[in-house]
Design a binder for these strands. Structure first.
Lengths: 173, 173
DNA sequence: CCTAAATTTCGGTCAGGACTGAAACGAGCG
DNA sequence: CGCTCGTTTCAGTCCTGACCGAAATTTAGG
């Protein structure tokens, strides 16, 4: 059991990208592998394919499940766990964005609100600084709201929107 | 010379966020500090404010400049370098997005194209896998194109667009 | 219950990258 | 020219977090 050259290239690259995106290399490689696999895989198969420790696979899969990127499935008469990734790229994108919002945007927004409040009571702080904090807070707030609404929109609509690209600006005055 | 409590909170949080976004803590802290500062700062002032080594400030500023987030300025009769951040949040956002596209999206797109081409010559690879690779390639391509066009759009228009949120979908059928 | 298979937990090791401080470098001024 | 102030380079240290492998735990079947 082994990966084809093209699949291996994909998996390795994805692993590298993962390290730049908050998750560890192994988790990203597993996600890539499951995304490409025509059928769900077992943990021991992943161990063999990626040449990593069993425990590493276990914790990484747990992480992927917590992100909502990977689901567990079962085969009748087999008590071992099988795993598969979301296969719709838009669903994947949405899941990742959602997690990042929760883990990064929300805490940052909370901090910015607190800072904006605190700074009002700081007489010695320059008005320019105060405005910068408010600007950043408003920006993150807007971004956060936008994520929230985009979350509801179906994939097909999003594709069309992106394909429109700059054309969409025609609707704004 | 020291930061007010609110500014310090902001800078520390931004530093933490930086570590999750590909850059190091110090670079992110410096950017935050310069963003909030009413006037440009010198390297030695940053050393004192953040309590980090002079060399660390030097390399981090260099990184920020390469990202286009920080500019150097000078004061008449003073040969020391002064630094200031972009102050417009949208400009900041744009600069960051642009860099990430260059450093992550472009290489990934190149890899995906290569894989899609390679996999066509792999008779043993499942058709489903082949399609998954193509789907991901198309997705990244679309995202890349979208970045490209969004890059041109003025900040005010982008703000309006995001405020519209899901309302924009009315225009798509 | 007991056993065997599968999975998770946990302490220890290792690698990568941030950070420091000293030394090298460069540029303007006397 | 040489001195001083400012900046960069570089080798070494430290710390975080990924990863491994053994031990503990859980679960299903006999």
């Amino acid at each position: 059991m082994q990966m084809s050259p093209a699949v291996e290239k994909y998996v390795l690259h994805w692993g590298e990208m993962g390290t730049r995106w908050g998750t560890n290399r192994t988790a990203a490689q597993i996600q890539a592998l499951l995304y490409l696999s025509p059928e769900p895989l077992r943990a021991d198969q992943i161990v063999e394919l990626l040449s990593v420790a069993r425990s590493n696979v276990s914790t990484s899969i747990r992480e992927l499940q917590s992100y909502g990127l990977v689901k567990m499935t079962h085969v009748l008469g087999d008590r071992r766990d099988y795993f598969e990734s979301l296969h719709d790229v838009w669903e994947l994108f949405r899941a990742i964005i959602h997690q990042r919002k929760e883990r990064e945007l929300n805490p940052t927004l909370a901090m910015l609100r607190q800072c904006a409040a605190d700074v009002d009571r700081e007489a010695e702080t320059d008005p320019v600084t105060k405005e910068r904090i408010r600007n950043m807070r408003d920006f993150v707030q807007t971004t956060s709201d936008w994520y929230e609404t985009i979350h509801e929109v179906p994939s097909s609509t999003l594709t069309k929107l992106m394909k429109l690209g700059a054309g969409i600006t025609k609707f704004v005055k």
